[in-house]
């Protein structure tokens, strides 16, 4: 996963010397070679990733043709691609994606907001931790899939129930990371800020919040992967559309090509969500070395 952590480098040309005396590199070989090094690294990373993708496709093709697994149950990449195209043409992919993404997005937004807020409360205040801590600790081992029956009883099989299941899983995941992040802020930061006379509200906004930034990014990344797990649980528990719903239907008709398409869709969505959060997040907490 190391490839997903992005770091912000300033081009060497922007770096001003601290003291006025040092000459600024205006048009110099070091600047150019720095740039070409960066470009070289980007190209190499992209090439490596392409190579991995190609290798996987080839391996997949070989396994599928070899017949180790019955050909009817294990489609080749080409067959999968054809399934994808026909699903796309009939509009199934589009409507499933819309349905699933909507559920994940709303559930994640609610869960991440609530989880972050509770994480701050329990991490910052011992009293909150004493009251809420045991409740959350009790809920944490209860997986989203176990909540599906209750959700159906409460909300029926409409959208609300899906949001509830996703949000439930995300709250617990995000809470843990945020709580831990707040609780682990090096005390020296708060101490110093208090020493300079900052009021508690300023300490929360200017010290605790940014100091927790890296943990929040981790929390949201983990939360987004949990959101997709919960989505599958929610859709398998009763839905009329969505990627996981489609997987279940295709499974009944042994349409493995279409099943593969659904699985790949889930994988791509998960990677894309993680990439988005990591990229935006690491930009915001650019000062953090993680």
């Amino acid at each position: 996963m190391a490839t997903l952590t992005t770091r912000r480098f300033r081009p060497a040309a922007e770096v001003t010397p601290a003291s006025g005396e040092t000459a600024r590199p205006t048009d110099s070989a070091p600047v150019r070679s720095f740039r070409s090094n960066v470009a070289g690294r980007v190209v190499r990373t992209a090439a490596t990733r392409m190579a991995v993708v190609v290798f996987c496709l080839v391996a997949w093709e070989v396994v599928a043709r070899s017949g180790i697994i019955s050909k009817a149950l294990f489609p080749t990449p080409l067959e999968t691609w054809q399934s994808a195209r026909s699903l796309w043409r009939t509009g199934v992919v589009g409507s499933d994606l819309r349905a699933s993404l909507g559920r994940v997005a709303v559930g994640f937004a609610i869960g991440a907001t609530v989880g972050t807020a509770i994480g701050f409360a329990t991490g910052y205040s011992k009293a909150c931790s004493a009251v809420l801590g045991p409740i959350i600790t009790f809920l944490r081992p209860i997986p989203a899939i176990a909540v599906v029956p209750l959700s159906t009883a409460w909300f029926g099989i409409g959208q609300k129930g899906k949001y509830f299941i996703v949000a439930y899983a995300v709250v617990l995941a995000v809470w843990l990371y945020v709580h831990d992040g707040v609780a682990r802020i090096p005390p020296v930061y708060v101490r110093v800020a208090r020493g300079y006379g900052l009021r508690p509200i300023k300490i929360l906004g200017k010290i605790v919040l940014p100091a927790t930034g890296p943990s929040i990014v981790s929390a949201l990344r983990y939360g987004s992967s949990v959101a997709f797990l919960a989505l599958v649980a929610a859709e398998l528990g009763g839905a009329q559309n969505g990627i996981a719903y489609r997987l279940q239907v295709d499974s009944q008709f042994l349409q493995t090509g279409r099943i593969f398409v659904g699985l790949i869709e889930l994988g791509i969505l998960g990677v894309a969500a993680d990439f988005l959060i990591a990229t935006v997040g690491n930009r915001l907490v650019h000062w953090s070395s993680t």
């Binding site: 020296v188 020493g195 300079y196 006379g197 900052l198 200017k206 010290i207 940014p210 100091a211 907490v285």
Partner: peptide
């Protein structure tokens, strides 16, 4: 602790998310 006593430690204790300027400005909040 109070702003009448400023502390300088071996491990600087600057806020890594603030620029040099913002770090100094913090001491002027009051």
């Amino acid at each position: 602790p109070g702003p009448d006593r400023a502390v300088v430690l071996q491990q600087y204790a600057l806020m890594p998310w603030m620029t040099a300027l913002a770090n100094v400005e913090m001491a002027l909040e009051r």
